[in-house]
Design a binder for these strands. Sequence first.
DNA 1: GAAGACATGACAATCATTCTCAGGAGCCGG
DNA 2: CCGGCTCCTGAGAATGATTGTCATGTCTTC
Lengths: 136, 136
Amino acid sequence: MTTKQRTTKQRTAILEALAEQEDFRSAQQLHDDLRSAGQAVGLATVYRNLQALAAGGQVDVLVTDDGESIYRQCAEEAHHHHLVCRECGSTVEFQAPELEEWTRAIAAAHGFTDVHHTMEVFGLCPEHEAGEAPSR
Amino acid sequence: MTTKQRTTKQRTAILEALAEQEDFRSAQQLHDDLRSAGQAVGLATVYRNLQALAAGGQVDVLVTDDGESIYRQCAEEAHHHHLVCRECGSTVEFQAPELEEWTRAIAAAHGFTDVHHTMEVFGLCPEHEAGEAPSR
DNA sequence: GAAGACATGACAATCATTCTCAGGAGCCGG
DNA sequence: CCGGCTCCTGAGAATGATTGTCATGTCTTC
């Protein structure tokens, strides 16, 4: 099950790049980051590793509204959710025991089993809460 | 803000196609559906109208794991969530007042403003809850 | 019925992501 | 330490969904 995986310097580099990041980053951003850092890693490699890491639960994935996948190395190992600033991308992790229970209850009420859910919260962090409607 | 919109037969056709559907459909699926139904509508038009309808709150949009946008005409006008069977795609709508409040609370606790959230639940509906691990 | 405004449709253009394939680098037994 | 085999990497091509372009069609209003 646990697909055999080697320890290559590219993989290590990617993990380190993720470790230095607070925010969610797209594969492409990460690729740029690595380039800038002098670590020339192929784009395809970044994608492959990111997927592998995500599959192994070592990083969290989110799909943005426009269908881009973004990755982040999270502090919590356990299931948790995110509060993300839609301007600067800064992220707060939080857990929601009530939500979990509550979800289970709703699912059960409709006879659904083997449930899992996605829930993310987007907003403006204290630093960006100004009342203007900028870019989009 | 309310962009002026005409009543064209294409738009009508799209709405009808959506009305006949219980499940979420992608733009391309809808396009095919229309084609099959004899209503030859341009793909670009389907995309445009879907977006317009979504913006106007007349249809709901969901972004799948692989970044595809899927649309559905929902019964509820108000904000609500979905419980979707990952085998057959059948969907149950539900509201979650507690969740809404609760989300606001968490956001506030971290100083976030202008918050909105996404939350969808996936599972196996009563008809598919068998213990086998089929396709994927 | 005519003019102007917006919608449509076919196709090109984008963009993120995946595939392909040749060359390179870990890992294991000797 | 060496050979060999397998997995990984990297560059670019290929894919697939979505968006842009622009000439033409169709409402609406007068």
